[in-house]
Design a protein around this nucleic acid. Structure first.
Lengths: 211, 211, 211, 211
DNA sequence: AATGAATGAGGCTTCATTCAT
DNA sequence: GATGAATGAAGCCTCATTCAT
């Protein structure tokens, strides 16, 4: 986990050339968009290649099959999420302790901003439930996020018994995903309301665990 | 709503004979299973027919296309959900007022039991996000559930301003769905923990709105 | 030829009951309409049964397959054509001799009137070219019509050598069919012009053969 | 007209490479044969692909659907017919005036030779009457041929009032098609007789209009 | 490495025909 | 005899994947 070389073989070649790296990035961007827009099955490799400005031949040079594209997107999404978490963790335990309520808001805002722009969130979470094969990958993602959240909770909500931390983290991750996904398909106004109410929900849930 | 002749233009025969009715029920059961297992796109009409113990020809006698099967499942699911809600509503507003906490638990237990057996829940919620076409149907379902929940909240949580009731109901519906869906793909032990924690979450969320 | 029991077995049972006879007639009418409207392949047996006010089951009681319906229509068309010819033949050779020009006009008018109402002409000639199987049937029809026309020509156009009579008759039949078919798919005004010009054409063609 | 991108929305690739062009030509040849042999509906795309020595996938790379193949054949046929007409028109009005009888013979001979080899004629005229959708295309072809013939008639048969020219041309085109089509399905000997008699018919029809 | 033409398995759907009631 | 539900073969078309250039 987190070390590349995933599930379906993901990558055939490690792109050493700079140009290749950029090309692969364009492919992933394109795939993310297409998967987010029409879903995994309706997405055609041709459409992805075209939007990436390449040929399918080139796509298959780096990804053994369609699924590998999806996996790579998940991986990249995770990488970005890791960075996001790193940021909050680096703010120091100090803040988590004293100001956890505001921190919850910040985290939710950060994810909301991130998800709205990147589309990766949508692509990943929307298609994760596709089938058994995807679930493994999906749950892995889910679990990693929970694992990253757990230590934060350890500080912000010290009353949670260590053994239960992962459970609570999982609850939060899953709830947050569902609600942001919902917000994503509503109009601007409603989205804002949903996001704000999500903050309320998470705060109320964690409150008794805090302090 | 609830009177047949839905969305995708049911240009097909309406089952009047007893035997046909049973057959159609078998088809819907089969479709529910297959959609729940492999997702809408990966599900083949052939597989559905086979599992239903009929021929594709017969399936198409009642459903004009694959999507119609899904819509019918959604409709049937909604019908069952309506019954579930009716039950709680008929218990009288009395309980909602005094004993709303226990009532939340009961509702969650009821849905959990229901969802675990029927698979319809899984089939519907998992595939609802597929595409624009499905979203309409999916959000309609979502909205109907929220609308049914809203009045209950009106009694149990009188502090919610009427204008905000639907928002809160939507939050609960969506959160509940996400968490039960999660529980559904975990093992027995973990599922129980998740369901229990879900009760906690919902209660805490509603608490300040109650009384 | 002309004795029933054609090609694909045509009829399974000879309808003795009056009711059955009427029913079969309705089926043929329906088939004629449908074949004329959408063509043989696009015509569904179900549509034919429905328009005939029966069930497919009943259709198959009298016709072993779809093709048999078409053959029966051809047969019935031929019967009607025979009657038409009989009429002209019975007017006596006298007229053919002295007044053949007017007779040509009458024949063409008669066919035009007949074809426009009955639809059978359209159904038969339009679908006759479908495939090898149909061609046999179609050419048979063609030939029978030519054979009926030949003796009339023998009188009206005595200069045609007997050996050539069938050739000329075939020419006339085929030309007439093509032009009436064309007229049938043009609007009223144009149709009239075409029919009139057809008379001119046939007259000019036969003129040197006459007298 | 004549520039590609026809009717059924050629959303497919335009063959630029030499190899592709040859492949497409093979597909059209195959389609022409199959359509001519069994008719449009009975023709299967698979059969066409096989006879063309390719896969259906390749066929669909260039033609969005079966109908597009037919349209392309019609278009190609028209192109060839145009060339044929061009030839006669370029012979100069001189001949049409003095020697129109021989010219009629030549035209008929030319078409007969052309139609016998190309099969396109058969494929097009036989299936043109199929349905409303085909009629448009079919009548367009019919009309174009008549329009090309009209000016020739203007010279050869100056007695036809300009307003009537198109009518006469249409008569000739349609008659000629019907008779050549008939000749095509008879044996060699009979075919020759029919073609010769066709010349007689057309000459006699036009005679009074000439000079 | 890049391209994109070629392949063909497989999915959805229709409809002629059968047969139990 | 009549009905119409049931069957399943077969057709059109898509699209993931390969491979020659």
């Amino acid at each position: 986990m987190g070390t590349k070389d995933e599930a379906s073989g993901e990558k055939r070649r490690v792109p050493t050339q700079e140009r290749s790296r950029a090309r692969v990035a364009r492919m992933l961007d394109a795939a993310t968009e297409v998967f987010a827009e029409v879903g995994f099955d309706a997405a055609t490799t041709e459409a992805i290649a075209e939007r990436a400005g390449t040929s399918i031949g080139s796509v298959y040079q780096f990804f053994p099959n369609k699924k590998a594209l999806f996996d790579a997107i998940g991986e990249r999404y995770l990488d970005e999420v890791r960075v996001l978490f790193e940021r909050f963790l680096s703010e120091g335990p100090a803040r988590a302790k004293t100001d956890w309520r505001a921190m919850v808001d910040d985290v939710i805002d950060a994810f909301w901003a991130f998800d709205r722009d990147s589309l990766a969130f949508r692509a990943v979470w929307l298609n994760m439930h596709r089938s058994a094969e995807f679930l493994v990958q999906g749950d892995a993602l889910n679990r990693e996020m929970a694992e990253r959240l757990a230590p934060v909770l350890g500080i912000a909500a010290p009353k949670i018994k260590p053994a239960k931390r992962l459970l609570v983290a999982t609850m939060v991750v899953e709830t947050l995903s569902a609600l942001l996904l919902l917000a994503l398909r509503r109009d601007e106004r409603m989205a804002k309301k949903l996001v704000d109410e999500t903050k309320v929900l998470v705060r109320r849930y964690l409150e008794p665990y805090a302090d």
